[in-house]
Amino acid sequence: MSDLDALYQQTILDHARARSGGDLPESQTAAAPGLPGTGQSHQLNPVCGDEITLRVEVDGGKVTAVRWNGAGCAISMASASVLSELAEGLVPKELQGLIENFRELMRSRGRMEADEEVLGDAAALSGVSKYPARVKCAMLSWVAAEDALQQAVTTS
C-alpha cells in the first residue's frame, strides 16, 4: 500500500462520508447549552479553515453522546466520526486516556504502531502521522472533545 493509500484507507473515506455524530444542528453551534453534564467546544484550523463544534454529554458517569457540526477535509471529518463512535459509553477517564493515546500516535511521525484493540477504527488514521501538515486535521475533533469533556465533567 502506498503512503497515500495508507492515509486514505477505505475506512477513512467511509467515515468521511457517513460522519457519525455529525448531526448537531447548525442552530445549536453558536453557544454552549449550559446544561449540567454537557460541554461544547469550537475549534478552528486557521491554516485550512477546517472547523468543528463538538458537544459531549455525560450522564450517570458515562459519556452518553458526542455530536458535532463541522466542515473540512476527509481526514478531519473521518476523525470526528470515528471519535464519536468510540466515545459513547466510555467513562470520562477512559475517553481522556483514549484522546491521549491518539495524540501520541498522531505525533509519532509514523514511528508508532497503532493499538487496534484500544483505538478501533481510529487506528486507521495512523497513516496521518507521517504527514505532519495533516496531524492538525486529524486532531481537531479530539482537541474539541478534550475541552468539551472537561466542561461536561465539571458541570455534571
Binding site: 492515509l7 486514505y8 485550512c48 479553515g49 477535509c73 481526514i75 495533516r134
Partner: peptide, 22 residues
C-alpha cells in the same frame, strides 16, 4: 466533493506542489 486539503495531498503524492486553502 473533495476538500482542497485532500486534493493537495493527492497531488503532493505525485510530486506536484500546489497551494491549498484560502
Amino acid at each position: 466533493g473533495v476538500h482542497a486539503h485532500d486534493v493537495g495531498q493527492f497531488l503532493d503524492d505525485r510530486g506536484i506542489a500546489v497551494r491549498v486553502g484560502h
